[in-house]
Design a protein around this nucleic acid. Structure first.
Lengths: 152, 152
DNA sequence: TATTGTTATACTCTATAACTATA
DNA sequence: TATAGTTATAGAGTATAACAATA
């Protein structure tokens, strides 16, 4: 803070980067965050979409068509996605008890373990990323983001 | 604000969402931002990676292998990506004048038009998203994000 | 008839391995 | 030998269209 009002001088080293616009800040942040998630997923040979599938199943037992809405995918895409996840033992298909047309998808124990691990690693990444901010600044950031996010 | 300290009651309707953690805030924000970008890209029949390719070419004339570094893709993936973009008239391959092994990739006029359009739409999305924040709050948010982003 | 889910098909995207041409 | 780029191949991911079973 001692240099906050210091005038530029030949000893100041390289100039600071050009002022970040708010749009650029949001775009860059989103790429960096997704990159961390992608790397954590890749450490379990998971794609981003497989990871999102597992994440969505943490606290839900949706039908195939509900999954399509949650992940914004066509039902045929969901079929393939769940096929591959099921073949790897990550999720389980079970018939709906009310509607015999419907199939519900659940996380397997193995799927849940992996999900917990990816989440923990990602949380660690985010904590590291937020390292430069004071506790107060983090609260401010989270609150501002909360106000910008679509309702709930 | 009038109900802030009211005790829970049968008339309170659904409870407010649990306090957003900073990790969740970052994750959700990144998904929402990417979703906007993806939709703007899709309006031109572009995938996210094709859009990133065009974005990277806005102010560069990289070789194929440089593109691989910039987009974090294998050189063979870059070959295919550029093949499809070139077939659609979005980019142009030109031989490097110094190194006869190398190929440089440039944005075509059409590619540049599309890039400008996607960027404008995305900027509009982000402005709308930031609508709830005062000018002062936006500055704070941008500054906090700037401090969290990997150096430059 | 409408909805749920799967399958067939076609395309994009990605990596690995093998190759050619140039340095 | 090393680097730049392409091609062949294989697999994930996606959507459209057509289909069967159930509501």
């Amino acid at each position: 803070m001692t240099r906050r009002h210091a005038p530029p001088s030949a000893d100041d080293g390289p100039p600071p980067p050009a002022r970040l616009t708010d749009v650029d800040a949001l775009a860059q942040l989103s790429f960096v965050v997704q990159q961390h998630l992608q790397r954590r997923a890749a450490s379990h040979e998971l794609s981003l979409i497989q990871t999102r599938l597992l994440g969505v199943l943490r606290d839900r037992r949706p039908t195939m068509s509900e999954l399509g809405v949650l992940l914004d995918l066509d039902k045929s895409s969901v079929s393939g996605l769940v096929d591959r996840a099921e073949a790897r033992g990550l999720v389980i298909r079970a018939p709906d008890e009310m509607d015999r047309r419907a199939t519900r998808v659940t996380l397997s124990d193995h799927g849940r373990e992996i999900t917990v691990d990816v989440t923990a690693g990602f949380t660690e990444d985010m904590s590291t990323m937020l390292g430069p901010l004071s506790s107060r600044d983090r609260t401010t950031l989270t609150s501002l983001i909360g106000r910008v996010l679509p309702n709930p």
